[in-house]
Design a protein around this nucleic acid. Structure first.
Lengths: 236, 236, 236, 236
DNA sequence: AATGAATGAGCCTTCATTCAT
DNA sequence: GATGAATGAAGGCTCATTCAT
């Protein structure tokens, strides 16, 4: 019962688990195959045997982590499409933060490192993943901003939201570091995911509403302007 | 001919310039001394001659970039301390984004990579730099939130603001990449710093105000509650 | 074809053999890993793979040579402890010289170089090895000198003996050099180990006896002196 | 008065002094030009400027030390050629040991290192120096051994003497080492040159006499044998 | 399928030497 | 005459990869 995959997938899976963890912790460049194989308790040659090389393992590890992550945390946070935009936004924010905080998935952490220090190997894959993420937010944001919103507003709004979420990665990363490396970091505060999500949501809604209101005013204004113009015209 | 051996700082500076650029573009691990020296058009051994090693060059390059950056973009954005909190916040946000966007300084980009893929070499230095940054925002945020705000609120608010700013690094990084690497990234939008700063400011102020209002309500509520209690007590 | 990857000790042994020879011939500093690996007909990286580095290989090679040497030439020269001191001395001298002359062990030659140009890597190991050597001689020398001998006499006597032996190393070294280097050394005489040992023994015994006789005389003298003094005292 | 050689020989001499010391302490290979120039407090380029390279400096430093040494300690120890062989032997032994012990000359120490770890640079020079040394001893030894001695006896006798002397180098070297390196060497005994010389002389004379006596006996014996034979023959 | 042994490319670094002043 | 700056050659080491079992 314990050993489910004696069929030669055992090693492969051990490698994927180890790789995603180590890559997430150290990044592609500082990680050596030996590091991974030590954790996976397999032979160094296994990397090449099963994946063909370090680069391929890296890609596979990310995909593996990505699938695992999506399975555990659906992007919409379990909120149905017919729910209110605000609820759906909350769902997505929470989902993202939970993916980051889940100590068993490394998708976001790897992606974050990849964005900062690109290897080029995950460019396409990360790009499409980010696009999915962004589009999810974009739709909701557009809905919340209303029909008066222009492209730039939608872009900046969802960027802000996504960026607030991404910042969370650093904290998680720090809090996961071995204690030795935190010497001078004793002010690392333990942050609760839901608390953080609340604040991101507040900022998001407040920001969006602020822009929406502004849009309304200026559009009303322009309507008024039109009326005035019309009157003026009529007065002629 | 080439200008060589003039005052011994020529090469040193060329190395610092090249190093900060290459380190910012590739990160510490993917960068080789040869890469830097090629850009600086100096001999590989120069790194050791002038700095003692790759690691020391890395540290020096960051400091160099940091100094250059601060000189060009004061952290308060040139806004005097007696200005309104909102103006000071705008100043800081703009200052930070400009430091990121300035194609001649690499301070933030290196720091960002260092946070994502730590070498351990800049831990202390980056930590203190981040602390300065955070404290600057924190003070203003606390002021804006008013005296009813608790620590958690201040923390999350300034985190959100800083995170919104940091997200900008990715966009700058992408837009600076050589064209070859942007193959599939044709949807990278050219972003104007001031525009982006406006939106970060709107979100920040809206979020802060939202929390502030909530605080006020709940405190009024509790006052009312006290009054009611007193009445009840009086009715006894 | 070549026998490779049989049991993983093949390469290791080839390295040890080559290393002890080359180190003995050139010393630590002039020897490069490439030199050794060329002789051993293995890849340069093998040094690090099997030993972790040049220094460790150096240490291992000495130990290897030391063990081999002791196995072939027991320090007491096969002379039993109950034999006469002179025979035991002869045994030790011969054993040492044979260890030096044996073209298959490099223990002494490496040690000699290490004493002249210390790397610091063999300090402890050589020191203890020398101590064993010295102590072996010391005991016999003390026995031969008799109970009247003082510490200084024992020290200098066994130093002289050891030094006479060590001088043999140079001759062996010269005679082992490639012919090219011996251009002007055509007067290097082929020396027979046993002949040399005989002379060292003669000098050793003669020197020791000379000192012993002196000791006896002076002690007799002092006895006489005491007697004379007593007489003088009695005459008072 | 202080600066006697302001004429561009100042630096040259400083280099020679520093070089002979450092080369004696570390040997050719572990010594870097920088080491020497640091001690000499001159620029690194000076080595090449004044001597043309490290190797030439090495040779010059040895010659410099050699001359200085001979000047201070004449090889015959100041004993006139008409003195008794034993006195002349004592003179030579003492002279050699004093050359070794003199903290201002490095001739022997460099030569000793060169013999152990040859660079090839001093081969000729050292060889002729050794030959002079050996020949000096050889003549005296031959005289002491008497006319019955054969070549082999002379060779081994003077080798033994020279070897006893050379062993002294190690002790001097150890006692000159910085204290840090002597951690486990606390049993390094301070040795008095004259004491040591005495013992070398005792061993030398005793050994030589022992051989001489043996020669005499065997020659007498052969004479007797002849006589006996003659008698026997006469008795017939 | 999996592994221990072995390899080669490439990197950082050292150091003697050269260059321009 | 002397020096600080700069260089190129070479060494030790790391590490992804390959080989033979």
């Amino acid at each position: 019962m314990k050993k489910q995959r004696i069929d030669g997938q055992e090693t492969r899976l051990r490698l994927l688990d180890a790789a995603s963890m180590v890559f997430a912790k150290k990044g592609f460049w500082e990680t050596t195959n030996a590091d991974i194989c030590k954790v996976a308790q397999v032979n160094t040659a296994s990397v090449n045997y099963h994946f063909g090389g370090k680069e391929e393992l890296y890609i596979s590890a990310w995909k593996y982590s990505f699938d695992k992550s999506l399975e555990a945390h659906p992007q919409d946070g379990g909120v149905p499409p017919e729910a209110s935009p605000k609820d759906r936004l909350r769902g997505r924010i929470l989902s993202f933060l939970q993916r980051v905080a889940d100590p068993k998935t490394y998708e976001i952490e790897i992606m974050h490192k990849e964005m900062a220090c690109p290897t080029g190997l995950l460019h396409k894959i990360v790009h499409s993943s980010l696009k999915t993420l962004n589009d999810g937010f974009k739709t909701i944001v557009a809905e919340l901003l209303g029909k008066d919103a222009n492209e730039k507003q939608i872009l900046f709004c969802h960027m802000n939201i996504v960026n607030m979420c991404f910042g969370f990665v650093h904290y998680i990363h720090l809090s996961r570091l071995p204690i030795d490396d935190q010497n001078d970091m004793n002010d690392v505060v333990e942050i609760d995911v839901k608390d953080f999500a609340d604040y991101v949501l507040i900022f998001s809604m407040a920001g969006i509403n602020s822009i929406r209101k502004e849009n309304r005013n200026s559009s009303t204004l322009s309507e008024n302007n039109s009326k005035k113009k019309k009157r003026k015209a009529g007065n002629k």
